[in-house]
Simulated assay, not measured.
Amino acid sequence: MSIPSAVRIFEVGARDGLQNEKQMVPSDIKVELIERLVDAGVTSIETGSFVSPKWVPQMADTADVMAKLSRRDDVTYAVLTPNMKGYDGAVASKADEIEIFSAASEMFNQRNINCSIAESLERFAPVTEAATAAGIPYRASISCALGSPFEGEEIAPAAVADVAKKLYDMGAYEISLGDTIGVGTPLRTKQVIEAVANVIPIEAVGVHFHDTYGQALANYLAALEMGVARLDSSVAGLGGCPYAPGATGNVATEDVVYMLDGMGVDSGIDLKKLVKTAWFISDFFGRPPVSSVARALKGKLN
């Protein structure tokens, strides 16, 4: 399959990226981060999540962030909603779309949301039914699609495809395959995407890679070669996973955009503005971005 001429990047830095930071991020900083990303050309962005503050205190102010944003009609502002209480929060905040999630790993699902894969899908049924009735689009993600963080647990491509089909049949317009611990390699990536594309349209397949072993960009290229045009990434490489031992950050959006620009694939994102945004949030945390591109271009931003 030929590489897509254009892709849609779903920016996860403001939620998936920030949620693991021990230093609390004020709402105004989150709002500025989101608005800088939008100014750089991001058109689909994860702005927060309506989860219990007990479990994810960093996201306790999602309603405040949504209220303060200068919303644009051409941008999709999405929030994560694990249950009906979260869904009600999403509706109240006028989120453009919601996200639900499961995993291809039974052990991860138990650690993450204290239930089996089958039970997680049952829990989401009221959410998806309500969203469908209200005309609110929803996407879904599958954690551990390329490997499990737990020794001895194998993740078969067919198992990923089974979860993907069930989520797609529930009405999710996109199924994002997450390499939660970054163990995937290009061949493995293609095998999983092939299995999933046998049961749902390739147009509905997205990918979300972590860079634990330095394989994320290679895996994105493999996904592009399979015809995938929906890519998740996180500005400055923010993020990890509290329930996956050893998981490091998401791949940096600016690294992905640099690669796409070099391939002539249109992301609609201004690389210089994106790099400035990466340094903005990294300066707030008092550390440089993990992104190679952000560091390489720092002196060329003026």
Rank of each mutant, 00 (worst) to 15 (best):
D28W: 07
L69D: 04
I45Y: 13
A90G: 15
L33I: 13
S93A: 15
L80C: 03
V51M: 06
S70Y: 02
E35I: 14
S44G: 01
D73N: 15
A60W: 02
S49Q: 05
E21C: 07
R36P: 06
D39M: 04
L18R: 09
V38D: 00
T43G: 02
A78R: 14
T62G: 03
G41E: 09
D74C: 12
A92V: 05
P26K: 13
Q19V: 04
D64R: 14
K30C: 11
D28I: 13
M59K: 01
G48K: 03
V91C: 05
S44T: 13
S27V: 15
F50W: 08
D88S: 10
V38R: 00
E21H: 11
V31L: 10
Q19W: 08
K30S: 11
D88G: 00
T62Q: 09
R36A: 06
T43K: 15
S49T: 08
F50S: 09
M24A: 10
D64I: 12
S27H: 04
K68E: 04
M66N: 13
V56T: 07
D16S: 10
V75N: 07
N83F: 08
V65N: 02
K54R: 15
I45K: 09
D28C: 09
I29E: 00
T43C: 02
V31E: 00
Q19Y: 08
M24C: 00
K68R: 15
T47G: 11
G41L: 10
N20Q: 12
G41P: 06
D39L: 06
V75L: 07
W55S: 06
R72G: 02
V42S: 05
Q19N: 08
D64G: 01
M84P: 09
K68F: 02
S93K: 12
T76W: 02
V25F: 02
A67Y: 05
R71A: 11
V25H: 04
R71T: 13
T43N: 12
M59N: 05
S93N: 09
T62M: 07
V25S: 07
V91P: 05
D39Q: 12
P82R: 11
V51H: 06
M59G: 04
T47E: 05
E35S: 14
G89D: 01
T76Y: 06
I45S: 04
A90F: 08
V38I: 15
K85C: 02
D16Y: 11
K54V: 10
K85I: 12
T76F: 03
D74K: 12
Q23G: 00
S27G: 13
T43D: 07
S44I: 01
E32D: 15
K30Q: 04
K30M: 07
I29D: 00
S52R: 13
Y77F: 14
D73A: 15
S44D: 12
T43S: 12
T43Q: 11
R71D: 07
A92F: 01
Q58R: 05
W55A: 06
I45P: 07
W55T: 10
